[in-house]
């Protein structure tokens, strides 16, 4: 049996208490909400916190609030609650789509939005049992010092495997974190991640993700496409999130209305969700047509450099960037 290692378990009553506990125990502590990412990792000794701080009971993390047009979604909402939420499903379709595509219904009943945003990066050389990893003398992400994907790589190349983060970046959402000092700050989702498989989030260790702020819906459209082997269970081996706003009174799609603002974001290709600037350049200022979509997909294809450390051949994952970007954009046409 795969058993969890020993740890001290804390059940704080408030966010303030939770962050204070995390500050007290430093990097030897982990927050846990659904446990669907942390506990498998702990069973395989990929993560070995001495203190586990439960946060799913904190009511403050479960609210969905309208704040003058934009919507604040609590990080503690389960992925099931996110995709079933009427307002989210209507106005933030891509987020609902992404949440609904994560893992399985059982795991979505447990896993949370905040947990998925902070999901540990994944790699074929890392997501293995302790004995397996010991057999290759470990890797730099845990217990070792080499990257088996690219042995000369100075940094870890584990893959960002979250479905909701590319959408958050595409929508221009902000991620709110609270620190032990009691400070709350909002970090644009596009600045929250770092292209480093080990140090993949730009938040301090005591900072807790409390909510995500979604921009006011005013006609823009969004969608998400995910590549994986099975229609359930699997993490993305490619994700494409798109956001398109049109330049007319309502910002809505209309024949010949040029695109005013666009973001195409690739997930599961690097260690962070990655904005394809060339795709936005190809889309903005022109109506959304088959030609402009083709150009944007080409730009996404050009920058994608998947490594050989997930399911599927890397050549296939690279090849799929083109049709998946096209399909994501056709969905918002």
């Amino acid at each position: 049996m795969l058993r969890l290692p020993n740890f001290h378990y804390h059940v704080p009553a408030t966010v303030a208490e939770a962050v204070a506990l995390k500050a007290e125990h430093g990097p030897h502590a982990s927050y846990v909400a659904g446990g669907t990412d942390l506990y498998p990792n702990m069973k395989r000794r990929q993560q070995e916190p001495h203190h586990v701080i439960q946060i799913s009971q904190l009511r403050e993390l479960h609210e969905v609030r309208d704040e003058g047009g934009h919507v604040r979604v609590g990080a503690g909402l389960t992925l099931t609650a996110v995709h079933q939420h009427e307002r989210i499903a209507r106005d933030y379709h891509a987020l609902a789509e992404a949440a609904e595509s994560v893992a399985t219904p059982l795991l979505r009943n447990m896993g949370t939005l905040g947990g998925n945003l902070c999901l540990d990066t994944r790699c074929n050389y890392y997501d293995q049992s302790y004995e397996w990893r010991k057999g290759i003398n470990f890797c730099m992400k845990k217990d070792g010092d080499i990257c088996w994907v690219a042995k000369s790589s100075p940094k870890c190349l584990a893959v960002s495997s979250t479905d909701t983060a590319p959408v958050a970046v595409a929508l221009g959402a902000a991620i709110e974190v609270t620190s032990a000092k009691g400070e709350t700050r909002r970090i644009p989702a596009g600045d929250f991640f770092r292209n480093d498989g080990i140090d993949y989030m730009k938040k301090e260790h005591d900072e807790l993700v409390t909510s995500i702020h979604l921009p006011a819906p005013n006609g823009w459209r969004s969608s998400y496409m995910k590549l994986r082997r099975r229609g359930s269970f699997d993490f993305p081996v490619l994700g494409v999130a798109v956001f398109v706003k049109f330049a007319n009174a309502k910002g809505a799609a209309a024949k010949d209305a040029p695109v005013e603002e666009a973001r195409v974001v690739l997930g599961a290709v690097f260690s962070e969700p990655t904005i394809v600037h060339g795709a936005a350049d190809a889309l903005v200022g022109r109506p959304l047509t088959k030609e402009s979509i083709e150009d944007a997909a080409e730009a996404a294809f050009k920058i994608a450099k998947p490594m050989d450390n997930t399911d599927y051949l890397l050549s296939y994952r690279k090849e799929m960037v083109m049709p998946f970007t096209k399909r994501a954009l056709l969905k918002v046409m």
């Binding site: 378990y9 446990g35 799913s56 059982l106 009943n109 447990m110």
Partner: peptide, 13 residues
């Protein structure tokens, strides 16, 4: 009342 995976839920939770 909600289906969850008992292998990933702590007893104390």
């Amino acid at each position: 009342g909600e289906p969850v995976l008992s292998c990933l839920v702590l007893g104390v939770a």
